[in-house]
Amino acid sequence: MFFQQLINGLTTGSAYALIALGYTMIYGILGLINFAQGEIYMCGAFVAVLLLATGKVNFITAFAAGMGSAALLGVVLERVAFRPLRGAHPLVPLISAIGASIFLQSLALLLFGPNNRPFPVQFEFHTITVGDVVISALQGAILLAALILMALLMLFVRYTRYGKAIVACALDRDTARLMGINVDRMVALTFLIGSALSGAAGIMMAIYYNATYPRMGLLPGLKAFSAAILGGVGNIPGAILGGLLLGVAESLGAGYLSSGYKDAIAFVILILVLLIRPQGILKGKGH
């Protein structure tokens, strides 16, 4: 049972980690919580599912299109709901983000209806049974894909010109501008990357739970934020660690304590972290 829950937790945790990366990167560069991150996750899932349902595109194309649309939505959102408010009291963009989140959620509800959509492509996944632990190849694939995306992000931030420029903007915006870095462009790039990762997470979870619906992003979005705080806001490895830990904690909690309160576990952890170690496990720049 323990290992079973561990594996399940790592699978959902990898989705939390991917969304948390978006939160953490955007927070790092703008000091802003993008409340609509969960809706971006939902957008990625919907685009992939709708494309696949037409039966005319293959899985890889649909996946890429889902990620691409999520990225585009993120960039548009930054342009419309955040950029005009830069420099205002921090409450203002925060509330604007909430507004954007509600808007997107209800838009999806109007466009797609409230019902669950199953994932249109059936995958034949083998399951491996070790003792009494059942691991499906799907879980392995999700975990692997998430890890690859995370590794790509880390490489990008560490070794590319634009990656370093994003870090520079997060550390010291004025000095970054003195280097000739266009901060607006880097902010847009950050939204692009963070949103693409959230979109990917959305598609993965749409396959895993075989469900796509307008409010699917609400709880994963909130939980991923808790994960980002758990790991230390603004800290990229921290977001990954926080996401995976949270997924596992939630899964174990649901298994051993009570499944009815599964969704509360993340928030209890969040409140505990804020009480005990507000800077997170790996030190972040938040608070």
Partner: peptide, 21 residues
């Protein structure tokens, strides 16, 4: 800039490279 304002968590190399951004 005043107070040097180097990018603290980036390597010396990365700081120099950013100068030529």
């Amino acid at each position: 800039p005043e107070g040097r304002r180097v990018f603290a968590t980036l390597s010396v190399n990365a700081n120099l490279e950013l100068g030529a951004f």
